[in-house]
Amino acid sequence: MKNLLIVTAIAAPLLFSVNTKAEVISSSENGFQLKLEQPFEGSAKTGYNAFVDSVGNWWLSDHTWFGDATKLSIDATAGGCFCEVNGDHEALHMEVTYVQPNKTLRLVGGLGPLQSLGMSGTMTLQFSGNNVTLEYIVGGYPSTDFTKLAPIVDNVLSQQLASLSQYIEKN
């Protein structure tokens, strides 16, 4: 898994649009803060709806627990689930805590291996015009070096937003 994360971190910028503006705002031994911006075609409503309603079509399958992004869903209601259900295999990736349709979506939890590391975070997505801004603030017990994880998570989320933009462009 460690080698996969390193390869992903190196290859991500080569595979996806350079339009994603990504930045590690801060990182320490206890956590990190990321901010990413991605333009897309259409309106804020278009971006929001694609993010929520079509997550299984644009999320990259190699960043799922069970290898099939079509098994992902987002219930955009307070207490709703960003979940992956594949037969009797289930994963709660994040929980929805705030919804302002077509404008803001907030989720809490630890994506991917962050869960097993005891890390959790708050992800806020803001849709405005033809742009989405994603902020992810993650913290937890420092069982690993968060300063090394921050750029890896940043790259993976950059891939996801670029994939969202590409999906919107094609549809």
Rank of each mutant, 00 (worst) to 15 (best):
K21I: 04
V18S: 14
V96A: 08
S28E: 01
L72A: 11
C81W: 05
D88M: 10
G87N: 07
S163L: 06
V138A: 02
G139C: 13
E29F: 09
V156Y: 04
T147C: 08
G87K: 09
T147V: 11
V85D: 07
G109F: 01
G109P: 01
I25D: 07
T8E: 08
M119L: 13
Q33S: 14
S54M: 06
A76Y: 03
S28M: 06
L105C: 07
K35E: 13
L36Y: 09
K103S: 09
G110A: 05
M123W: 01
S27A: 15
F127H: 06
L105K: 05
T144S: 11
W58R: 05
G121D: 00
G112I: 00
D145Q: 15
M119P: 00
P101W: 11
A76L: 08
T20I: 15
L34I: 06
V55M: 10
L114S: 06
E37W: 02
P101C: 12
N86R: 03
S128W: 00
G118D: 05
V132L: 07
F32W: 05
Q38A: 06
P151V: 08
L111M: 11
V24S: 03
E29P: 00
P113A: 13
F40P: 02
Y136K: 05
G110V: 13
T147P: 02
G79S: 14
A44G: 14
E41F: 05
F146E: 01
S17A: 11
L15V: 12
G47N: 06
S61H: 12
V153W: 00
Y136H: 14
T124C: 01
Q38V: 03
I10N: 08
L14S: 10
N171D: 04
K35P: 00
P142I: 08
S17E: 04
T70K: 14
Y141N: 10
A11C: 07
V156S: 11
V153P: 00
V18T: 12
F66E: 07
L107R: 00
K35N: 09
G129Y: 06
A44S: 14
N130Y: 04
A69I: 07
T144H: 07
Q100M: 09
A78S: 12
S158V: 03
L92G: 01
V55W: 03
G47A: 04
V24K: 04
G80E: 03
Y141H: 12
S43G: 14
S17K: 09
G87L: 03
K148V: 11
Q115A: 13
G31S: 10
L14K: 12
I168E: 00
S143I: 13
F32A: 02
N57W: 01
T124Y: 01
D62C: 04
Q159M: 15
V138W: 00
I25F: 07
L4Q: 12
S165V: 06
E37R: 08
G118M: 10
G56D: 08
D68I: 09
T124G: 04
M123N: 05
G110R: 04
L36A: 12
P142R: 10
T147A: 14
Y167W: 15
E90V: 10
V153M: 04
I25M: 14
Q159D: 12
Q166N: 14
T8Y: 12
S143Q: 08
A69N: 08
V132I: 07
N49Y: 04
E41D: 12
T20Y: 03
M123Y: 01
V96T: 08
